[in-house]
Computed example of a mutant assay.
Amino acid sequence: MSMIRGATARSDADGQRLRYRHPAETRRSAPDAVRPARGEALAQSDESRNRAAIEADHALMQEVAAGDRGAFARLMAIEAPRLTRFAAATLTDLAEAEEVVQEALVRLWQQAEAWQPNARLATWLHQVAYRLCIDRLRRRRPQIDIDGLDDTLEDDAPRADQEMIRADDVRRVRAALARLPDRQRIAIVLSHFQELPQAEAASVMAIGEHAYESLLARARRRVRQIIEQEEAAEGEAFEKGARG
């Protein structure tokens, strides 16, 4: 009995009772202690990568500010294709999208000397392109032509949200996106087509992260609703045809 009692509890020098801890308890508790440290390490890693990217952008912009056309050509090669995809998905018009990208890059060239390394270059360009797209959308009639949408978006562009779509629904999703209000469509494009982090996407749209998250959630729900309605209508039409 004394051996069992000694295994479960003992007295320290001050006479306080200390509970015996089985080694398995220690093993179970270890991951809980490790998780916060691991999360902090990941956050620091992301922050380091973002800071390194900002520094690289700043170095490139210093060359552009000095009038280095070769540096500007490298910048265009990196940023123009992605920016064009964003503008094309937003405007559903490739020609207009190319005009927007050209204007955004011209503004960057003109303001190169005043560039401040406060954010990613890609984020700044998306902000400019976003405002230019909104201006064009406001000048349009309410109806948006979606005929050219297939030509402006890559077939694998929606791959970032596989829960929202299936591979064979790409065209259906594109049509659904074109029916969304402008801001909802842009929120989806920034997140799933451009794959911007939430903070950067919110910055592009000049809203808070919480507001962007809510906007994106509403847009996703609306896309699902549109697709489900179309599928139901197609099912009813098929049944009528089969009965006829």
Rank of each mutant, 00 (worst) to 15 (best):
S203K: 10
S45F: 10
R49W: 06
H192L: 12
G39I: 05
V100T: 09
A201W: 07
A7Y: 09
Y20R: 09
R185E: 00
Q44I: 03
L137F: 11
A201C: 12
S191Y: 04
S214I: 13
T90Q: 05
R172C: 01
L215E: 02
E113I: 12
E234R: 15
L75F: 09
D182Y: 13
Q184L: 03
D12R: 15
S214P: 01
A211I: 09
R120M: 02
L180D: 00
Q229D: 05
A65L: 05
R174K: 04
P31R: 15
V173W: 11
R138E: 07
A65V: 06
A41E: 03
A242F: 09
S214M: 11
R82N: 07
A24K: 14
R17C: 02
A71G: 08
I186E: 11
A71T: 08
I207C: 08
V64M: 04
L83I: 02
E209T: 13
R139M: 05
Q110D: 10
P31Q: 13
S191E: 05
A187R: 02
S203W: 03
Q111F: 01
R27M: 03
F238T: 01
V101S: 06
R221G: 00
V128A: 10
T8P: 00
Q44P: 01
E231A: 13
M164P: 01
P197L: 08
A202R: 06
S203D: 05
D151A: 15
D135V: 11
D169N: 07
I4K: 14
S48Y: 12
A56L: 12
Q110F: 11
T92M: 12
R85C: 08
E96N: 13
I144T: 07
A232Y: 06
V170M: 07
R17D: 01
L137G: 06
P117V: 11
D12P: 02
A95P: 00
P31Y: 15
